[in-house]
Nucleic acid binder design. Structure first.
Length: 206
DNA sequence: CTTGAGATGTTCT
DNA sequence: GAACATCTCAAGA
């Protein structure tokens, strides 16, 4: 094992916890991305849960959607979709296989490969590189080819955060979700308080 | 800080 | 057609 090996992926079992628990627990973990340009990474600071069975905002609410088939698969894989015709958004498939539950990653605090991300997003301020789900997609150079990627693999994975501070429960905020028109009352958005890398209006981030 | 419109392509009605 | 798990830019408070 080389001295500067990157932290290994979380075990597959990690993703079998209840989806709302997973959405909270992913805060403070690190998302890694390996591409031709190099390795980039950031600490997850904002997530949202989507649970098809009871969630009108889910892509698979009511009837299954072909584009969102990945969410019916086993937990621990990536569901990537194209939003508004131009943004690739990244979800972590959760829940029991067949349920269609997932966690949308909405913001990262960049920790590795900031130059690479900045080169992909020339006009974006440093602190905004991964602030918002569409920006994560751009900074990480995601595409539909990443849909279905194994999050226990070596191209796109989530690890414990090296030298992480303990994340006290009171550091985690909860709110309704952003950018949806149905299921707007469900408090399924989770974020780290007072973190400048979190997206959304300030009033939701307390 | 806020609001408002345009971009852009897939999915839904 | 309209809607969409969004972002950028410009203008105003």
């Amino acid at each position: 094992m080389s001295a500067n090996a990157l932290p290994p992926p979380l075990p597959r079992d990690y993703y079998t916890q209840p989806t709302l628990d997973l959405a909270r627990d992913l805060l403070g973990k690190t998302l890694w991305r390996r591409a031709d340009a190099g390795v980039v990474a950031g600490i997850i600071v904002e997530t949202e849960a989507y649970i098809a069975a009871i969630d009108p905002a889910s892509h698979n609410y009511g009837r299954p959607s072909p584009r969102a088939a990945t969410m019916f698969g086993p937990p621990g894989y990536a569901y990537v979709y194209l939003n508004y015709g131009m943004h690739y958004c990244l979800n972590v498939v959760a829940g029991p296989e067949g349920h269609s539950e997932a966690v949308l990653l909405r913001a990262l605090l960049p920790t590795h490969g900031r130059e690479i991300m900045a080169a992909r997003c020339p006009k974006t301020a440093l602190r905004d590189l991964c602030r918002g789900p569409g920006r994560i997609g751009r900074a990480l150079a995601l595409s539909l080819a990443d849909n279905g990627a194994d999050l226990a693999g070596d191209a796109l994975w989530i690890s414990e955060t090296p030298d992480a501070q303990l994340l006290a429960p009171e550091m985690i905020g909860t709110s309704t979700r952003i950018g949806i028109s149905r299921g707007t009352d469900l408090p399924w958005r989770f974020f780290i308080r007072n973190c400048p890398a979190v997206s959304g209006p300030a009033r939701l981030n307390r």
